[in-house]
């Protein structure tokens, strides 16, 4: 018998309809308990959550679900559209509707939504527009506004887009994060260049919650924000400023980590995530 070790993580497809379009969505999951729905970063896929998906301390109390957004990883572009004839530009409206439809399809009750970067920004959008659908959100490396990254360089035909995307986000990670995890993240980015720029349309253009954060019902949906000090796109100052304008929100600065904390250094990230989940749990107990 060959040596083999099976992971408790399982993968599955679910086909859903969003705004009349059909999406076959791939997701990984492990654990039982309150669902934590995890969104990867722009131009990437759900392997960024590989550490959390196999972390028993979390999976014994939570059902961790990490999906691939359409056009990422194993989730194809819409099945019923000639998508190659249009420029891909992700909008806040579609993105939030997609996530809510997926949560409905999986019949998730009281889920916590957690996403990083453009996933963190959409967590803020969900808190604003769908406060009844989620128990709490954990926006990681997020801000009310994150301009400046919707660049033509991500798809310039005279450069190697895979390498530009992968090495273009290299500095978003802390240099002291483990090499093997930084390079795994780099590798994932080399696979996602076709969607990266369109994702960043949401991240840097369509997402703008300036002047709207006080409308988030922080007494209904708990918001706990996490930002690494090596993140040059959404700095701890940006996270702190954003959280300070949301009722009952908390902000935690993560030291020695960057923009892809769950992927570049899960061992360090997990202690901050534990703190965030404890805050959410305490808030729920106080409400009960």
């Amino acid at each position: 018998m060959p040596k083999a070790k099976f992971s408790p993580v399982t993968g599955r497809y679910v086909t859903i309809e969003v705004e009349g379009d059909e999406y076959k969505v791939f997701y990984l999951e492990n654990g039982s308990g309150q669902p934590i729905v995890c969104q990867h970063t722009a131009g990437c896929h759900n392997h960024q959550w590989r550490g959390l998906l196999e972390d028993e301390e979390f999976t014994q109390n939570y059902r961790v679900i990490a999906y691939d957004l359409p056009r990422h990883g194993k989730s194809d572009p819409p099945l019923n559209q000639e998508w190659w004839k249009e420029e891909y530009k992700l909008t806040a409206d579609f993105y939030t509707k997609f996530i809510v439809t997926l949560c409905d399809a999986l019949e998730l009750e009281n889920p916590i939504f957690m996403g990083s970067s453009f996933g963190g920004n959409v967590a803020l959008q969900l808190a604003l527009y769908y406060p009844d659908r989620f128990d709490a959100v954990i926006p990681v490396e997020a801000a009310d506004h994150s301009p400046g990254f919707y660049l033509d360089w991500w798809q310039h035909p005279h450069a190697n887009a895979a390498q530009v995307c992968a090495s273009g986000v290299w500095d978003l990670m802390a240099p002291q994060s483990p090499d093997k995890d930084r390079w795994a993240t780099w590798f994932y980015y080399s696979q996602g260049s076709e969607a990266f720029k369109g994702d960043l349309y949401f991240y840097s253009v369509d997402h703008d919650l300036r002047g709207k954060l006080d409308q988030i019902q922080g007494d209904k949906i708990k918001v706990v924000m996490l930002t690494g000090d090596y993140d040059y796109l959404t700095t701890p100052e940006d996270g702190r400023r954003t959280a300070s304008q949301i009722k009952n929100a908390e902000f935690i600065e993560m030291v020695g980590i960057g923009h892809f904390p769950m992927s570049e250094n899960h061992e360090l990230f997990r202690s901050y995530l534990k703190e965030a989940l404890e805050i959410i749990s305490a808030a729920n107990k106080a409400k009960a």
């Binding site: 500095d171 802390a174 000090d229 040059y232 700095t235």
Partner: peptide
Amino acid sequence: PTPPPMYHGIWAASFQ
């Protein structure tokens, strides 16, 4: 050897 935040690459130092 371990650059401080915002000095850890040409993108970081250009943006910030």
